[in-house]
């Protein structure tokens, strides 16, 4: 009984299908519909507000009204799975990519991916960084077979579009102009630094190395690339390497 009522309530709130709760709800001098609408307003508006908080640049690019319509459809298709709203919206970038009215803005999903990565990074902890000196090795074989562990906040975004420039042009105080899509793509490293989430663009070699490290952590598979030493230096200098372990010989 209670379960059916809650399922009907959910269908009504998310407009999944038309369900009549009129028999279940007393009118009490005001229509059941008007009473239910209070709950529906809150669910829709509060979840949209959560998305706006996580995806401010995405909203600025498309405007409030378009964002509201897109968010409403996303919320119905992908309602939150957790009561922690900072974890809500991970599926939004892919949803945007498949959302026909946004197809004319091919860079939009990557802007949303950057915003999601910043959100995730900000909510990640910071592990004590590995000192550069402890990476200095005397045994080359051991060095090659090491695995490196990265900060839990570290994310990598590779985009065919200048999302870094787009993001910057849409911060408060900027008017969003001066972006030419012909500027091309970028590789961005995103992580948490102190109380902030930060990102910076890196060379493709560094991105490839980080991708390799994220895949299996093993240094040599990530490292057979020119310019990788510089990338390693970047990770070290920003405290993004938190551990190193020797791999047991196969």
């Amino acid at each position: 009984m209670l379960l059916e009522l809650q399922q009907d309530f959910r269908r009504h709130l998310l407009r999944e299908q038309a369900v009549s709760l009129s028999n279940a709800v007393l009118a009490d001098g005001l229509s059941a519909q008007a009473r239910l609408q209070v709950y529906r307003n809150h669910v829709t508006l509060s979840l949209r507000e959560a998305l706006r908080t996580t995806f401010p640049v995405t909203q600025r690019l498309v405007g409030e009204e378009f964002f509201a319509g897109m968010a409403r459809q996303f919320i119905a298709a992908h309602p939150p799975l957790s009561p922690c709203l900072s974890e809500f919206g991970g599926a939004f970038p892919d949803f945007i990519a498949a959302f026909p009215p946004a197809a004319m803005l091919p860079y939009l999903p990557d802007v949303a991916r950057l915003e999601w990565a910043l959100n995730e990074a900000w909510h990640s902890g910071i592990e004590p960084a590995l000192e550069a000196a402890s990476l200095a090795v005397t045994d080359p074989e051991a060095a090659a077979a090491s695995t490196l562990e990265l900060q839990p906040s570290l994310r990598l975004l590779t985009s065919a579009w200048p999302v870094e420039m787009i993001w910057r042009a849409n911060q408060s105080g900027q008017d969003g102009s001066g972006i030419d899509l012909a500027a091309g793509g970028c590789d961005l490293l995103i992580w948490r630094e102190g109380d902030d989430a930060v990102f910076r663009s890196v060379a493709p070699e560094a991105a490839a190395m980080v991708r390799g490290l994220q895949a299996d952590g093993v240094l040599h598979s990530a490292f057979a690339l020119a310019g990788a030493a510089e990338a390693l230096g970047l990770l070290l200098a920003n405290g993004l390497i938190v551990g190193r372990r020797a791999v047991a010989p196969a």
Binding site: M1, L2, R10, Y39, H42, V43, L47, L81, P83, L85
Partner: peptide
């Protein structure tokens, strides 16, 4: 109140019918 059904979190304090079952 309740806010979760079928693994979905509805972000509202939704009302319960005050029954013996509830």
């Amino acid at each position: 109140s309740w806010s979760i059904v079928g693994g979905t979190y509805l972000n509202d304090l939704l009302p319960l019918p005050y029954t013996e079952e509830a």
